[in-house]
């Protein structure tokens, strides 16, 4: 049953997302092709325009992905479609889990598409060399491999976006527990949850700073930032996001299982 739920959720989210993916690829391709034609101002201008459209499409696909995940959850679990969703012989736990799995998959593919598009746009030997040296410098200061560094950045951004998606789910659930102006309450609780979580993050970093001088320096001084400290914060960030994601998943699941309040 879970598999079937995920299948329908994915279908719905990808339906629009696929358009943005395609446009991202097309404009990346066009931009790249035109940029290869030398000595032509017209072409290089259109190429730049294409690149900017491509990049805006990539940004749109991230935003669209998250929005569609939320809209899908909201409609499917609380609006007219809820009358079907909640009368399927499936547990509420599975319904919620399906939305979370769908978020993980769609956000991940969106990142992969963006990486591929960036590659199409800007891949060239010289660019790669520049990137390589940059990464190598960074990697050596971070004391990890280049691939590790790329992975690290990717993971952090991915977790951040997933975390935002889950905050959205939790807020929709909280907003819909009340009996009036549900949408407004959902938005407010979303903002509040986000702020609380961010404050909590700072607090956690501060607490860690009490035991770790480098991190404390990062907070206390305006001096040039210590690379080691950033690295520690990065890893700490991954840990914190993972914990948040688990917390929001569990809280969302628990509240959702308590029952819905469909209009």
């Amino acid at each position: 049953m879970l598999g079937k739920l995920v299948k329908y959720d994915l279908k719905w989210v990808y339906k629009a997302l696929i358009v943005f993916y395609t446009l991202s690829f097309i404009f990346s391709g066009i931009g790249r092709a035109l940029s290869c034609i030398e000595n032509s101002i017209v072409f290089s201008v259109t190429s730049s325009i294409s690149f900017s459209i491509a990049i805006s499409m990539m940004i749109s696909s991230i935003i669209n992905c998250i929005m569609r995940l939320w809209v899908r959850f909201y409609r499917n679990a609380y609006k007219d479609e809820a009358y079907l969703t909640h009368t399927l012989p499936v547990s509420k736990n599975k319904i919620f889990m399906s939305k979370v799995i769908c978020a993980v998959i769609t956000i991940f593919t969106t990142f992969v598409v963006i990486l591929l598009c960036l590659f199409i746009c800007f891949y060239s030997k010289s660019n790669i060399e520049i990137l390589n040296t940059l990464l190598e410098i960074a990697a050596s200061t971070y004391e990890i491999t280049v691939i590790g560094l790329i992975l690290l950045i990717f993971v952090v951004i991915f977790l951040e976006v997933l975390f935002v998606a889950l905050i959205g789910y939790a807020s929709i659930i909280i907003g819909n527990r009340s009996n009036s102006s549900k949408m407004l309450k959902a938005v407010i609780s979303g903002i509040v949850l986000y702020l609380i979580t961010q404050v909590a993050t700072l607090l956690i970093i501060f607490v860690f700073g009490l035991f770790n001088k480098e991190i404390m320096n990062l907070i206390n001084t305006t001096n040039i930032v210590n690379i080691d400290a950033i690295k520690s914060v990065m890893f700490l960030g991954i840990g914190i996001y993972m914990v948040y994601i688990i917390i929001y998943y569990v809280v969302g699941k628990k509240l959702f299982e308590k029952g819905v309040n469909v209009d």
Partner: peptide, 21 residues
Amino acid sequence: PGILSKEIISYLPERTYLDKD
């Protein structure tokens, strides 16, 4: 009410609840 009850109850709400797409 739960999975078992949903298996045996067929419910027609007042709403139109199908995915319009």
